[in-house]
Structure formats: structure tokens, C-alpha cells
Amino acid sequence: MKNWNSLIAAPFLLVFLACGGSSSRTASTPEKATSMTYTDPVPAAGEWSLLKDPAASTPTRLVLNLVGPTGTLFRGVGFNLKVDSQKVTFSTFKDGNGVSLGYMNDKGILHDLDDASKAVPCLASAAGVKGDTLSVGIWQKCLRFTGYPSYYGTPTGTALMNDAMDCSTTPVLQVALDLGKDVLPGEVSMVISKAAIIPNHGKSVDLPLSATVRVGTLALK
């Protein structure tokens, strides 16, 4: 496949060089953007939002906290964030030992708080980037429901995860953007194309629901 592409590309390149070589133009070098300015959104009641983490951000790295609506308990959240990847790129996190955490910094508020089972896996979480889109999801192990099987020695009908979290004050996760190389100043498009949460509505069967995640405005300067 690679060889095929090269063969096709070569004649076009020659044509381009022939045209360009015959012209004589001068151009001033445009001023490159050196920093990012993010304005937090104002969510309506019941909405989630991506807010700037001032402490973790730098002029060229924007760290966004995902914050939930006040008083809402939930068991998982995920969203797809689309940006103009010509101008900014999704960035990864590292832990204290330099080990990559990937595109999401799980703040650790979704987990089983029972020490006796701390090593039992309880989160189905992942983050990935495809083209312009970052997809993140962090989902807790399911809630009790009738007929629940014995699991890890847990008696039938016992909840595996009983902790529903209020993340209105503590962010559930972070994502980050880096300023692109040699990009010009201007607005950067940021769109949440879809979002969902698993609410804590106390029913025997939980289902993911659509949610609204507000994103602010990003400008390159």
C-alpha cells in the first residue's frame, strides 16, 4: 500500500514544483499562536461541564476537569469531544512514576470504597483518540438487581458497587489539550458530539442515559 501511494504521489509533486518554481513571490511570516485561552461554560441545571483546571494548565497545555451538576449522584459518565486537531491535539497524562495514564486522568472518585475488595476490578474505563475525536468513558461496576449471581463469593442479591458519587465539587476525570505546532491565532472549534451517564436513580435496573456536557470556548493567542 505504501509503495502504491508513493508512485501516485510522485507525478503530482513534479507538476507542483514546476509551477512553483517559475513564480517569484515574497510572503511575511505570520505570527504563531503561543498560548491557549479557555473560557469556562455556564451549565444549566442538570448539565455537566468541562472546566479549566487552572493549577494543572499552562499556556500551551489546557487541562479540563469534568464536573457534574450539583447534588447529582451517578455511576459513570462518558463523552466524545471533537476539536480542530489542526490547531490543538489531545494530550496524555503521566503518573508520579512517569508511566503513561493515557488520554484520561481518572481522579479516582469512582471506585469501590470497601478495603476488603480493593483489588477487585470495578471500573470499565477507557479513553482513545480517533482523528479529531477523543472518546472517554468511566463506568462503575453495575448495581444490585434481582437474581444477581454469586460473584467473588458475594451472596446472591448483594450489590457489588454501592457507591454513587457526587462530583459537583470533585471532578471525576481530566482531559488535556496541547497547543499545536506552528498554528495561527484564532478560535478553536470544540464540540461534544455525544455524552451519556449512568445515573443513580435507585431502580433495580440502571441504564445509561443521554447527558449534556457543556464545553467552553477556546482561543489561541
Binding site: 462518558g78 470499565a124 479513553a127 472517554v136 453495575c142 444477581y148 460473584y151 455525544k194 440502571d206
Partner: peptide, 16 residues
């Protein structure tokens, strides 16, 4: 197929 689909896995976790 994106990270939102993992919600169903979490809800299925541990169930027959």
C-alpha cells in the same frame, strides 16, 4: 464503537 459503549459492559459485569 466508542467509550460510551463501555457503559453497557459495566452494567453487565458479573451477570449471567
Amino acid at each position: 464503537f466508542d467509550a460510551l459503549d463501555l457503559a453497557a459492559y459495566a452494567l453487565s459485569w458479573g451477570r449471567f
